[in-house]
């Protein structure tokens, strides 16, 4: 009984003190080592209240470790973390009653139904959302009475997101909430996340989908090898690194090893496994020249794509790799 009353009172107090003046999440010089492997190596960022913040990076970049050390699920080896002004290691219960967490590869009691699981998790929080609302938010109304062990991978994922929402919490940590979902469920979940943000929640999510980060996040941090290599609004990041547009030429239309002559207005050429990408400040001029060159060399340009630069290009430029290599 004691353990129950105490944190909720402290949490109310924290809510009053905290209101809007504190940043939702402050992470400074966070470090987590596994032996000699530096899983998180000096990560710093701040998430303001009401913001959707994305941590973007390839698998193994340190996203999950950042999430788990930030909420105090793993002890950190260095640095500072404050969640609404509280250190998750010093005051774990205060922090945990203010955050909802969805972990990757989460599992639950296999022989409880979806509704029972939601109800059970709800009982852990000082204040909770209605079960029906949670079911609706993650689109599991029809599965309410199905046993957890009978759920598909995507449904399990949606349940795990739902469980992050059962408490009336201020901050949501979502670790790859949409990986493994079909496109329709992904879009539905985006709607849910945007709805939660309008409700006033702060959302911290990790993803390796660039389009997701661009569509959802107010700001993104790009992480690679445990370090943040870029941080800012998606548009700003793109603008900062590219004034150019990108021309993608599929590699099977270009003979291997062929060096393109320097084309007019092209500032940079990237070659990866699939494409040769030309970045140009003057699309019309480059294209005219490329056309003439292709005609001379009897090259087909049928499958060439022209697009705006994206976060993918930013990642490619900063690391020399694509995010899902």
């Amino acid at each position: 009984m004691m353990g129950k009353i105490l944190p909720s009172r402290r949490c109310e107090k924290a809510r009053e003190e905290g209101a809007k003046s504190v940043s939702a999440i402050v992470v400074q010089e966070l470090r987590k080592y596994y032996g000699t492997v530096k899983a998180v190596d000096g990560v710093s960022f701040t998430v303001e209240q009401g913001e959707i913040f994305g941590l973007l990076g390839p698998n193994g970049a340190g996203k999950t470790t950042t999430v788990e050390t930030s909420i105090g699920l793993l002890p950190r080896d260095g640095g500072e973390v404050r969640i609404l002004g509280h250190d998750p290691q010093e005051e774990p219960l205060v922090v945990k009653s203010q955050v909802g967490v969805q972990l990757q590869m989460a599992q639950f009691f296999p022989r409880l139904s979806v509704l029972e699981t939601i109800r059970l998790f709800g009982s852990f929080y000082p204040r909770k959302r209605k079960e029906k609302e949670v079911l609706a938010l993650v689109g599991l109304e029809e599965k309410a009475h199905a046993l957890v062990e009978k759920l598909s991978g995507g449904q399990l994922k949606r349940l795990s997101v739902g469980l992050a929402l059962v408490g009336e919490v201020d901050i949501l940590f979502l670790d790859e909430p949409t990986s493994g979902l079909d496109p329709q469920s992904r879009r539905n979940l985006w709607e849910t996340i945007l709805w939660l943000q309008r409700e006033g929640k702060t959302i911290f999510l990790t993803t390796h989908y660039l389009d997701e980060a661009e569509k959802l996040c107010h700001r993104v941090a790009i992480i690679d090898h445990g370090r943040i290599i870029a941080l800012g609004k998606p548009k700003d990041l793109i603008a900062e690194h590219f004034v150019e547009k990108a021309i993608e030429i599929p590699l099977d239309e270009v003979e291997d090893g062929r060096e393109f002559p320097p084309l007019q207005s092209v500032t940079k050429t990237e070659r990866d496994a699939e494409n040769l990408t030309l970045y140009t400040v003057d699309l019309a001029a480059t294209f005219a020249e490329l056309g003439r060159y292709a005609e001379e060399q009897k090259l087909s340009l049928r499958n060439v794509v022209v697009r705006e630069a994206t976060l993918e290009d930013v990642f490619l430029k900063l690391t020399g790799r694509r995010i899902r290599d």
């Binding site: 909420i71 699920l73 219960l93 972990l103 852990f124 000082p126 795990s160 469980l163």
Partner: peptide, 8 residues
């Protein structure tokens, strides 16, 4: 681990 992320 999952339950560890809740206030329980």
């Amino acid at each position: 681990r999952q339950l560890g992320a809740t206030p329980l």
